[in-house]
Each structure stands twice: as structure tokens, then as C-alpha cells.
Write a protein that binds this DNA or RNA. Sequence first.
DNA 1: CAGTAAGACGATACTGAGTCTCGGCAATGT
DNA 2: ACATTGCCGAGACTCAGTATCGTCTTACTG
Lengths: 224, 224
Amino acid sequence: MDKPTARDRLAQAAIGLFNERGYEQTTVDDIAERAGLSRATFFRHYRSKEDVIFPDHDRLLGQVRDRLRSSSHSTALAAVSDAVRLVLLHYLDEGDLARRRYALTSTVPALRDREIVSVARYQRLFREFITAWMAGRAEYTALQAELMAAAVVSAHNHVLRRWLRGESPDPVREVDQALNQVISLFTPRTPEGDAGGATVVAFRTSQPLDTLIPAIQTLLETGP
Amino acid sequence: MDKPTARDRLAQAAIGLFNERGYEQTTVDDIAERAGLSRATFFRHYRSKEDVIFPDHDRLLGQVRDRLRSSSHSTALAAVSDAVRLVLLHYLDEGDLARRRYALTSTVPALRDREIVSVARYQRLFREFITAWMAGRAEYTALQAELMAAAVVSAHNHVLRRWLRGESPDPVREVDQALNQVISLFTPRTPEGDAGGATVVAFRTSQPLDTLIPAIQTLLETGP
DNA sequence: CAGTAAGACGATACTGAGTCTCGGCAATGT
DNA sequence: ACATTGCCGAGACTCAGTATCGTCTTACTG
């Protein structure tokens, strides 16, 4: 029966005090005192007071990055959708701890902001991955990369929050559905890239024909 | 020739010092001293040191909220797309000031995080508006509201950042195109209400197909 | 004109987060 | 037995942000 490490004692003390008195009403001195340690030790283990709530965000972000690096999906969107599952599974694995943290981030503005910033880091990682994947493929635009990254993150967050609120009995299934919806949102309905024979391309738009025809003509003559 | 108000003197002093020594290297005392005022006066005019960089974010958020309230668009997505233009126009109106702020938020992590949090507030407002609009309309889901809000914000941010970097000569046009692309993303592709008969269009060009396809796609999505 | 009420500012003290340095102590390896 | 390494406590320090009190100006009013 080893006694828990100093780091864990600090985290336990912090969560306990946050629940009892609230976040702002708890000082780092209080946390250290309850853990039977000194203030300096707290800052050795956690960079800030907020950090004790989000201990392993950096590690998780690294895992997602690794997953993307070693991914062999046919499209960037599929790779990112696959990688974001790691995040959801991490939260599910935390179980009740994630729920208690959600109770805090819902009520304490400083923690909510911190959470938002963390999410933005995932979105940025995804955007950069998609952009890199698209490099050289002229049929994609930077805006699309931006939209895809935002959509994947939103889909994940939506399911995660539902689970945190106890509204989702099967979040793994739900996140698959949500991500499929995102993928189908971005897959063009026009078939392309077939082998030989005739190529039939059909576009459909609500734009008036009168303005389109000259625009397409100049496009064909002068290039994009 | 009235001398500028204390608030403006503080803002000027702050921006000047941030550019000279950097953000972290500048204390609130420094700002107050250069402005010829006291530290207490600084905190009377700005809630925090970061606030001097983002003075009127709350006001702008309120304007967007009002715009949404008094909007009479046929779809929620159109209303939100319209409202987000206010944000872009606000930045364009600031001109060089926005550029200098971007230089700061690009390099100072604390300010970048603050910016991210501000953006998230818009996204939340949009999501809530779309959700409220969808209430009672069973053909929409909460996930769609989430995705739409994220997409509109992403489209806006994409164009805004391009303009801030000096890559966009006509951001107003670009944001219209980007928002049209977002709208077309969420309008179901299933052709309905087509009045019979085939549409046959044939063009011939020497342009390479790889560059033409994306150009035509954006043309159809965003208009000429 | 005299009196007064309100608002802007300065001075000061305080709390608390985060940084830094030094010094002790225990476990480990040679 | 001795040195090294790593964890910890103590304490001083900087700075953001809050709160209080006193002063001065401005403007309004009788």
C-alpha cells in the first residue's frame, strides 16, 4: 500500500476544495496545505492553478498528433475524424472525473476560457494537418481546410457535451454518426476520376445562367 | 484643440510600449506613467491589462446580437451570415490598428488566447440563435446548429486573417464568397422542383482539368 | 455668488498567482 | 564512505487586480 504521489495528493486536494468552497475562493496555499505539501511543490507539479484541472491536455494533444502522423487514410477528413476519437475516448475513460470537471468549467469563467483555448489547439492542429495534406492538390482550398477542421471539432464537442450532461447513453456510436455526417457534408456528390472513356461532368447551381456563361468562358480562356 | 481623453492616452501609451518592449515586459505602471496618469486610473478605464487591446469587443458583440434580433431572413444561416459581416466591417474600419493588434496577438500567447475566447463568444451566440430558430422545426438537429455556427465563424476568421496578413485586397467580396460557400454546403444537394428536361452543356478548352475543376466549383458556389 | 453634489483622479494598502533562489534531506550508485 | 541526483520547504520578489479613502475640479442650484 504505497501512499499516493505528491502530484495526486495535490490534485485530490484541489478538486475537493473547489467543490467545497468554489474555485476562486480556494487559494493555492489552501490546496498545498490540505495535501500536506508546500506551495512551491504545487507549482513544481502544475504550471498554474488552472493546470490542476487539465493535467494531461498536452499529452493528449501529442497523442492526437502522433495518430495523425502515422495515419494512412485516403482523405484528410477521414484521418482527422479518426484522430478526434482519441479525445472522446480519453474523456470517457476518465468517467466521473470528467463530469466533475465539466461542472466546474460550466460555472467558473476562467476555467471555461481555458477549456475553449484547449479546444482551439486541437482545431489548429487539424487545420494544419488538412492544409498539409491538401498541398499540391489544387481541387481544395484553404477555406475548406478551415471548415473541415471546425466541423470535426464541433461534432466531437457536441457529442462530448451531451455525454457530460448525461444525455448520451452511447457516445461512441453518436460520435461516429456525427463524424459521418460531417464527412458526407464535404463529399461532393459529383463522381470524378474514372478510368478512360467519356467524362461527363454535371454541375448544378442556382446562379443565373446569364452571368455564369461569360464567367465560365473567360475562365476557360484565361485560366483561373 | 482639446487634449485627448485619459482613456485614449492610456491606450496610446500601452500600444506604444507593447511594440517597443513587448507585452510581458510592460507593466501597468509603465503604461500609466507614460500616459501621465496613475495605476488606479488605468484600471478604472480598462478591466485588465489585456482589455486595453480589445476595448470594444463587448459592444461589438452587442451589436451583432441586436442585428440578429432584428433580422428577417428566411433561414437562420442567412441571418447569421449577415450578422457576422458586422464583425469583419468593424475590423476593416479599424484599419491599421487592427493590423498592429494582430501583430501582437500572433506573438503573445496570452493575447492569442484572449482572442480565441472572444471568437468563441460569437460562435456561442450564433449557435444559440440557430438553435432557437430551429426549435419546432424537426428537420434540423442540434448538431447542425453547431456545425453551422462553427462554419460561419470559420469562414469569417479565414477572410479576416487573410486581410490582416495583407493577402486579401477585397475582403468584403471574399467574405461574401466564403459565406456563400458555407450556405451552399448546408443546402441539400438533392435537385428538387426541377422543371423536367435535360440540361446539356459542352465546353472545350486547352486548360488543364486539375486547375479548372476547383475554379468552376468556387464559381458555382460563390457566384462570379 | 455661495454652497453642494457628482465624478475623475491619486495614493495607498492588500490579496493572490507565479517565479526564483537557496538550502536540506533522502535515495541511489560507485 | 562519499558523491550525485532528485524532491521538497522556506522565503523573498514581481506584478495583476481589488478596495478604500481623500482631494480636486466641474457643474448645477438656490
